[in-house]
Amino acid sequence: MTSSSTVSSVSAPADTEAALRRLINSGYRFVHPRDADGEIVAVVGVRAHHTVVDVVRLDAEDEVTAARVPGDEENVLEPVTVLWRSSGAVGDVVGELLALADEDHAAPRPQWATSATAAATKGCWVAGQAGRTKWLVASA
């Protein structure tokens, strides 16, 4: 084993931990989808803000997908409408996601929207285990 392979095998978990800390510090809340046996299949971070929801799914250190979807998207884990998307290694994808301005790709509020309608999009439902859903409150 060469020293470069040792460095890369040690840095991947460190990169993942640093990326997760950046997401937590940015207001992301996490859910952990499980398979039928109860095993965690991914780590999913969600941040609802303004008129959008940002979602990042970590299946492995080099298998990460992030997306920005409209705040009224019914299923943020399998969205019909995607405003922005990226996939790749954890450091790259999380960096791109956190570099997005809150206004980037934001849907304008319709003129007919009332304060009650706006309040209704201040969070999102995320599928949990055993068919249950969880409401994640918007961070901004």
Rank of each mutant, 00 (worst) to 15 (best):
Y28L: 04
G131K: 07
A89H: 07
A60H: 08
Y28S: 05
G131Q: 05
M1E: 13
E17F: 08
W135T: 11
G95Q: 05
T121I: 05
F30C: 05
V53F: 01
S3R: 15
P108D: 11
V90W: 01
A130W: 02
G88W: 07
V90G: 08
P79M: 03
S4V: 12
I40C: 11
H49D: 05
E96Y: 08
C124S: 14
K122P: 04
H50T: 10
A12I: 15
L23A: 00
H49G: 05
S4P: 02
V94L: 01
S87F: 07
Y28H: 10
A138T: 12
S115Y: 09
A48R: 02
E61D: 11
A118P: 04
T81K: 15
A127I: 06
A130G: 13
A138P: 02
A99G: 13
T2N: 15
V55I: 09
A127F: 05
I24Y: 09
S9A: 13
A66R: 00
V55Q: 00
L23P: 00
L97H: 05
S86N: 10
G131H: 04
R29I: 06
P79H: 06
R85L: 08
R47C: 04
A107H: 07
A12M: 14
R34L: 01
S8I: 04
A107W: 01
E103R: 14
V90D: 04
V69F: 00
G128I: 13
H50I: 01
V137P: 08
T51D: 02
A66T: 04
L100Y: 12
E103M: 09
A18C: 03
V94N: 01
A18F: 01
L23G: 01
S139N: 09
V44S: 06
A19Q: 02
P13K: 07
S139R: 06
T117K: 15
A101P: 15
V53H: 01
V46G: 07
R22G: 02
S3T: 14
T81H: 15
S8W: 05
S9E: 13
R34G: 01
A101Y: 07
L98V: 09
K134Q: 12
